[in-house]
């Protein structure tokens, strides 16, 4: 039974296995066509956002010829691949730069919300008692605001800017993340390995961060993916309501707001940003769905 195998140092093997696990995860993704489509949609927009400065695009804020159709020739001899809007700005360029903006702010805002929400959740779930009561009460207060209304209040007090969006998303999302994490922790903390850690006298923070959180990652990854989608929606919605990232920089929501009343004679300036927004959010939702499906299988 004891065919003891020579044991090398632990580290290189660990690193390799992490890389391998990443590729295994990617290979798994192939088994969910839905998730794959989502991933491709997201990758497309991420590529666009990264490449935006290097693509031969017009300045998104440059005012040229208004109401140009798709494929029209620009005054300088170039082509408006997707036409221009009512002010004569290149729609293609505005959509791509808009993607960059919404992706950066959405990712950042979700990240901040996650850090706050996870800490609150682990604390409430693991400590229980008063810590739980207090954290849960704070969370309940913010959860009692409908999402957009919370954003509106925050924008109304702080004024519109990217940072306001981050604050708004954090206030609105962190309590929800906290609830999820709290639920997961309540379940995980009855496991024997947590008792084992306690019986070795580990500190509560070690248990929360090293023993508990890593095991909650599965559902959290799915949720993070969905939440990125929500955040994109939130940013676009604020833009649409005129409360978002301030003009003139391109913002998908604002583009829609301006284009819809003129939709009768410039349909493309309304449909194109709408389609861009829909495809990105669909991407996040499909990817989340695929991830969930795969995680349930295992």
């Amino acid at each position: 039974m004891t065919d003891a195998v020579k044991f090398d140092t632990a580290l290189p093997a660990k690193r390799e296995s992490r890389l391998k696990r990443f590729f295994q995860a990617l290979a798994l993704m192939r088994e969910s066509p839905v998730g794959m489509i989502g991933l491709l949609l997201i990758l497309f927009w991420v590529m666009m956002a990264i490449l935006a400065p290097f693509l031969p695009l017009y300045d998104p804020n440059a005012i040229m010829a208004p109401f140009q159709k798709i494929g029209a020739t620009a005054p300088d001899g170039g082509i408006f691949w997707l036409g221009t809007d009512h002010k004569g700005r290149d729609i293609l360029s505005r959509i791509i730069w808009g993607a960059q903006k919404v992706l950066i702010w959405a990712t950042f805002a979700t990240f901040v919300a996650y850090v706050v929400g996870m800490l609150m959740g682990v604390l409430a779930g693991y400590k229980g008692g008063w810590a739980d009561e207090i954290v849960s009460f704070i969370a309940n207060i913010f959860l009692s605001f409908p999402f957009i209304i919370l954003c509106i209040i925050i924008v109304a007090t702080l004024g519109a800017s990217g940072w306001t969006v981050v604050v708004a998303v954090t206030f609105a999302s962190a309590p929800q993340i906290m609830r999820i994490v709290r639920g997961l922790v309540l379940d995980l903390k009855t496991r024997d390995y947590i008792f084992a850690a306690q019986t070795r006298g580990e500190s509560p923070w070690y248990i929360m961060l090293v023993e508990l959180l890593p095991n909650a990652r599965g559902p959290l990854i799915v949720d993070a993916c969905l939440r990125l989608g929500y955040t994109v929606v939130a940013i676009a919605t604020l833009g649409f309501l005129g409360l978002g990232l301030p003009p003139p920089d391109p913002d998908w929501g604002l583009m829609l707001k301006e284009a819809v009343p003129l939709g009768a004679f410039a349909g493309h300036s309304m449909y194109l940003p709408a389609a861009a927004l829909a495809s990105l959010i669909l991407g996040f939702n499909l990817l989340a769905d695929g991830l969930r499906e795969i995680s349930l299988r295992d």
Partner: peptide
């Protein structure tokens, strides 16, 4: 699939498409 598609698209995008079709 139908319900993922429809929930994924925010209201004002749906509204844009519907307005485009039914109104314009």
């Amino acid at each position: 699939i139908f319900s993922v598609l429809t929930t994924s698209i925010p209201e004002f995008v749906t509204a844009t498409f519907l307005t485009g079709l039914f109104v314009y």
